[in-house]
Design a protein around this nucleic acid. Structure first.
Length: 425
RNA sequence: GGAGGCGUACCCAAGCGGCUGAAGGGGUCGGUCUUGAAAACCGAUAGAGGGGUUUCGCCCCUGCCAGAGUUCGAAUCUCUGCGCCUCCGCCA
């Protein structure tokens, strides 16, 4: 949520910043409502003070044997007036909130305006391998080596799903263990959150009200619940409605969860396999920081995500997203993209973002600063990492001419020392 | 799933219609005493949100889980929701 004070004080700045996110913002309705709100508050509060005074005088008057009937009549009239005023105020505030809560986060000043086409690669790692033979795509490789069973997945579930089988399951689990071990080594606290969350959690994360249709809602639960689309949704709600102390910050968390997404629209043929499905595994990092600490935390998290990919020996790049390509709630996003040889492109395996105080404002997550005042926390999140892209990249980048796959060094200890996964057909 | 109970500050807890922004205890912080510490004693300790303010000191509104209601007046009475606890049923 954008600070309403900022909108009122610097409407032109907010308009320009949101324009970079390709969002056409008109501050006028908000300004008008805010003015109305203030006038009403002054009126209603003066009235209430009067009502309170009169009410409080009742015991004294009774004691003196005076007539309280006129006071009762007067206060009753005032109360009715105040109730109407408060209802009007509630209406205005709800309207105001509705206007503000749908606004995306302001992008950082240094971001380029516009969408995807203006993303800037800022770093590249590794050299794209010359295969010397015709490389296979990951679907073919996974089937050859018996890592993934798409057919039976369709039988027991439907399209957009897959089954990790045998060494595939173990490779997947090895990746997750490798990530977890690295995060623990970096002092992040491990969390296993519930996968079923309430509306407030989606609201705080910034997914609701705008993107309610993008998640899976559970039937038969009241109040309604949805299944998390990313562990971020759970993690950025851990300290909702809390006031943390300065020594609590920064807080560094990570969680492994499957992520459940509707991903509206049909799959392109190039995205067959496990590039995009209804469910994928991800380890997610989240940090809560002070206002001053969030830039450093962002750098740290980008680096961590990068290191994980580097540790696997995969060719990848870092992309600084243009304002319009950053997600709704984020002020800044860097993507780590890994090379997928069969597609000839780089695919996102991690998205590291700084929400600044956008989510904290929605969830009233604050801390007591050195100045003794309460400030909103900054929240940051980043995948560390999503396996559904890493897995294809890994099998494709490490494939041999005969269809076997070399296991990256760092994963071998989780696979009983296995060095090469051989085709079974 | 069924029955009952509870939700007051950092923690425990009193209050059950006006004198309660809220007793008491613990904790924490500061002080006295002490070579130092403990003990004892003294003092401080309701956060938060929203308004106002030529005196920046304060003042007003909201606020006892949340929301609605009854009342001139609600922590206190009523309803709804949420959460927690106990018992029964079911179950990994």
């Amino acid at each position: 949520m954008i600070d309403i004070k900022l909108i009122l004080e610097k409407p032109e700045y907010v308009k320009a910043a949101l324009a970079k996110k390709l969002w056409d913002f008109d501050p006028k309705p908000i300004q008008d409502l805010a003015e109305k709100r203030l006038d009403l508050i002054k009126k209603v509060e003066a009235n209430k003070a009067e009502q309170n005074r009169l009410s409080a005088s009742v015991p004294q008057i009774k004691k003196e044997g005076g007539d309280v009937a006129p006071i009762f009549a007067k206060v009753k009239a005032l109360a009715a007036e105040n109730k109407a005023g408060e209802e009007e105020l509630a209406r205005i505030e709800a309207e105001l909130k509705a206007l503000i809560e749908v606004l995306p986060n302001l992008p950082d000043d240094d971001l380029l305006a516009g969408g995807k086409e203006n993303n800037t690669p800022i770093a590249h790692f590794g050299t794209e391998r010359e295969f010397g033979f015709k490389p296979r795509n990951h679907v073919e490789l996974c089937e050859m080596c018996g890592l993934i069973d798409y057919k039976r997945a369709a039988k027991i579930s439907g399209t957009g799903t897959w089954i990790y089988t045998n060494l595939g399951a173990r490779l997947e689990w090895a990746l997750l263990n490798y990530f977890i071990e690295c995060h623990l080594a970096d002092g992040y606290e491990m969390i296993l959150p519930p996968h079923i969350l309430n509306y407030e959690s989606g609201y705080t994360a910034g997914q609701f009200p705008k993107f309610q249709e993008d998640v899976f809602w559970l039937e038969g639960m009241e109040p309604r619940k949805f299944i998390l689309p990313t562990a971020e949704t759970a993690l950025v709600n851990l300290h909702r409605n809390e006031i943390l102390s300065l020594d609590d910050l920064p807080r560094k968390y990570f969680a492994y969860t499957p992520c459940y997404r509707k991903e509206a629209g049909s799959y392109r043929t190039e995205e067959r396999g496990m590039i995009r499905g209804y469910q994928f595994n991800k380890v997610e990092m989240v940090q809560y920081t002070t206002e001053e600490g969030s830039d450093a935390a962002f750098e740290e998290m980008v680096n961590k995500a990068r290191k994980l990919v580097e540790g696997l020996g995969l060719v990848h790049q870092v992309d600084k997203l243009a304002a319009g390509d950053c997600s709704h709630s984020m002020a800044r996003t860097y993507d780590i993209e890994v090379w997928i040889p069969s597609m000839g492109i780089y695919k996102e395996v991690s998205s590291v973002s700084n929400a600044r105080d956008y989510q904290a404002r929605r969830g009233m997550c604050r801390y007591k600063g050195a100045d003794g005042k309460t400030h909103y926390c900054h929240t940051l999140n980043g995948s560390g990492l999503a396996t559904s892209r890493i897995f294809p990249a890994l099998v494709e980048q490490y494939q041999q001419e005969d269809g076997s796959i070399v296991v990256p060094e760092v994963l071998r200890k989780y696979l009983g020392g296995l060095e090469v996964i051989k085709p079974i057909k």
